[in-house]
Design a protein around this nucleic acid. Sequence first.
DNA 1: CCAAAAGTGTTGGGATTACACCCATGC
DNA 2: GCATGGGTGTAATCCCAACACTTTTGG
Lengths: 231, 231
Amino acid sequence: MDELLPKFESVFSIDCVIFGFDAGELKVLLIERNEEPFKDWFALPGYIVGQQESIDDAAERILNELTGLRGLHMEQFHTFGEVNRHPQGRVVTVAYYALIRINGQKELRPVTQYARKAFWHPVNELPKLAFDHSEIFNTGFNKIRRRLSYQPIAFELLPEKFTLTQLQMLYEAILNKKLDKRNFRKKMLSYGFLKELDEKQRGVSYRAAKLYKFDKRKYTKIFQNELTVEG
Amino acid sequence: MDELLPKFESVFSIDCVIFGFDAGELKVLLIERNEEPFKDWFALPGYIVGQQESIDDAAERILNELTGLRGLHMEQFHTFGEVNRHPQGRVVTVAYYALIRINGQKELRPVTQYARKAFWHPVNELPKLAFDHSEIFNTGFNKIRRRLSYQPIAFELLPEKFTLTQLQMLYEAILNKKLDKRNFRKKMLSYGFLKELDEKQRGVSYRAAKLYKFDKRKYTKIFQNELTVEG
DNA sequence: CCAAAAGTGTTGGGATTACACCCATGC
DNA sequence: GCATGGGTGTAATCCCAACACTTTTGG
């Protein structure tokens, strides 16, 4: 099969690891490939960078073309450059990740023929993925785990209004361990960037929980200082 | 000038930010370029990745050719992919860093004609560098600063035997702030991976300090657990 | 009234900070 | 004997982990 395909001299590509959270489960966005190589396989959304676009711009364009998503803030996390990671030639790929709200998003609809469909898949029990995408996924997953322990990135995954229990379930899904309810709440509230709303949960058959939202102003004020090294 | 040079379609390159510590000062390894573009400028050691080598292998080869250094463990930290970062065409560069002992190293001697010389330069008062290398350096510097706060990577910069004051000076140079002597020593010793030697400093005109070295076995035992995410 | 999840405080241990003086050595 | 850096302890505070019961609500 390899011989029938065009060979690349050297190209860069982008692969995206997009996390979402839905029904108490952490999910990752996959596509079903519609082109060789690895036709019909599941893969991370990814494609080749154009000559006249920065890699950051390319990441946004490619994700949009393959999934229909637009305008999310992705961050580069690792570059994969083994010689034979792509059967058609030398392709070095820069991997990006993002965390998004599944609910708030429109339907996933690939724009190109390159992907047959895009869909959310639970991060547990991931099938084998095309290329070295399983490794890319694992690297990205470890990255956000570690990052979550020192930066509250989790709210990017939640709807605008959420309960503390939802937030805790998300932390538990990412960190893969149980957390203590009282300690968790105490700590989250102590940061000071959670804003308690007057609203409560609706439609549940038990005591309704208070809803919160993130106060982005306070959040950035608190955390920009920790990241900058002055001097 | 640009018109006279060959144009690249798309290539990857490696740039290296190598930190050293000498005479109480943190330094970075630079080269003086001997080729257009940016001939005669100072730059980070960097060059183009070959078709048949992984980016990790390329990093080691390139550093060796430009500086004579060999076999150090470098780690990738960011990929720079702006369209016009290289005047001759599209060059995406993967940046690596490493920390090494200046004293233990042989003389710096470029193997290729591409660099006229390689030398250590204090990280403060860095001159303007070729391409976007100033930005690359800053990104790398911030990376090791942040990393130092949660991982004791500083040893890699010190000679095998060192005093606690030297270690503290190094931390202060990287973090760019004064530390309390007693607290610093208490904390470092509490980790348990510093081995006190029977030897003392020699040739100083004041009370000689005890020498220590790192117990690598204990060090890795302690810190491998922190990095692994079980699950 | 029952099931289900919401909500709420205290305590002990470990880590971190702040802080100042005497000691050993070479010259 | 003096200048220079080496070496040392304690108290106050903060942060984290452990732990269980009452309240509210819909059905």
